[in-house]
Design a protein around this nucleic acid. Structure first.
Lengths: 258, 258
DNA sequence: ATCGATATGAACAAAATATAACAATTTCGA
DNA sequence: TCGAAATTGTTATATTTTGTTCATATCGAT
């Protein structure tokens, strides 16, 4: 059993039966007390348990997690650069809509500096990221929690979008073709994103360059009707030219922006 | 066997039986540990597995945590008993509304066993708790994320409740007086909970006995119009008699139910 | 407050595991 | 068939993890 798994199990024990002694945990896992102490120290530093003399107690807070498959690295430079460029395009908008996704999550992190803005999103991680920013109002759109991703979609989400307006929206794309059509891999999400785009005065697509030139299940928008695509310099030259010719604006994220 | 196929099988192993050691995988495929390590490195870079020392875990997930100060101990026996009793009262309801709070969170954990039900909630921890139960549909009501608690309220939440109906609702109370009036400490949340109660066929209040005999800022319901209050045996005898006389039903949670 | 018992963390040692470099093998296209 | 490229195995060298010992700190009961 790996250390990470053992630590996770220790949390299970603490959460189900309250305080546990080091000796008890050592016996449960067949390891020495020192190992348990080191585990508990890690967990304490992460704020997940409270150390007591002789053992540990569940932290005096409920922590919960939203997990999702990490498609690409959150820290991929391209995504960070795209997020940095997108942040500048927020400008003086007071109301920002954010689609879910790792790029928009990186963008949300950068919004923490801004104050007095409202963020409207379907993404639980984004809501999590901004929950303690007292200067930012987070509005979560209602809807059905998807099984494979921590975000919301469905009829309720769409209905909510009908009654909201934003100054700017940043929407992720699973694919963008040469004509500037924007695609999503899910029918339900694509339909919802179409309404999100319709509810914002300015709309930007965010997508790393690998998405350009690909299509996906559902077309839900057109760059010519939006305000731009923010992507990285890896974009294919001819694809870029074709999109521009079709009326779309392509914004290349500057590199090394932090 | 090709490398790609082997990597795909490795994912199968990890997903079906959890953490696997390098040696185990090497034995399964009849290849050296080095080959497995290279496979795992590829999979890790693709974000599909988590490396651990000695093997890999399927927790190929990024997690985001919501944390909030817990007012009472989640592990307080009274709350667990109340949750256990409430679970039985779900009966054959297909749609369950859950207020946010530690008691309802404990109730949500018990619902994981049920299949084919829909859970409607304003609580992010509850959504988190149920997100991987594929048999349970989680509907998160939209709304404004509160700064001091991981749940939603506001006009959007109330509007969402207008369009939903549930078989049963469990609603936490900050206070319950002798006439069976149910109170909440926040105006916005109280108003929202009034709508939640109106949207359910059966409604139960859940509150540990310390809340009985107290009032709070806003009255939003009346036990006489609901189906009962689930509390623990610590409830004051005269308060219980008064509530019953006023037409409220008091349900005492059995102890030691796990 | 004092004492004995227990818990703790630092330092070190040992075992298990990872990494890098290189050799051997296989694959695939011309 | 040949040879380049990719894949895999082997070996030697780091790195991580775990266990043990021991001086110090902490707790609970007088």
């Amino acid at each position: 059993m790996s250390g990470a798994l053992r630590q996770s199990r220790i949390l299970d024990f603490l959460n189900t039966q309250g305080e546990c002694s080091v000796d008890f945990l050592a016996g449960q896992f067949g390891v020495s007390g020192m190992t348990i102490r080191r585990d508990l120290q890690d967990l304490q530093e992460a704020g997940r348990v409270l150390r007591t003399h002789g053992g540990a107690a569940p932290a005096d807070r409920v922590s919960f997690e939203f997990k999702f498959l990490e498609r690409g690295e959150l820290n991929e430079p391209a995504k960070r650069n795209i997020a940095a460029t997108a942040t500048k395009l927020v400008g003086d908008a007071r109301t920002v809509m954010l689609d879910s996704g790792t790029t928009t999550l990186a963008l949300a992190r950068r919004l923490r500096g801004h104050s007095g803005i409202s963020v409207i999103t379907t993404s639980l991680p984004i809501a999590s990221e901004l929950q303690f920013c007292s200067e930012i109002e987070v509005i979560l759109l209602g809807g059905i929690l998807r099984n494979d991703a921590p975000d919301l979609a469905g009829a309720l989400t769409e209905a909510n979008l009908e009654s909201l307006r934003a100054d700017v929206a940043f929407i992720g794309a699973d694919g963008i073709d040469e004509k500037g059509n924007v695609y999503n891999g899910s029918l339900a999400v694509g339909r919802m994103l179409g309404k999100m785009a319709a509810a914002a005065r300015r709309v930007y697509a965010v997508a790393d360059s690998s998405k350009v030139g690909r299509t996906a299940l559902m077309k839900f928008g057109k760059l010519a009707e939006w305000d731009g695509l923010i992507t990285d310099r890896g974009i294919d030259r001819s694809a870029r030219a074709a999109i521009t010719a079709a009326g779309g604006r392509v914004i290349i994220a500057a590199e090394g922006e932090e």
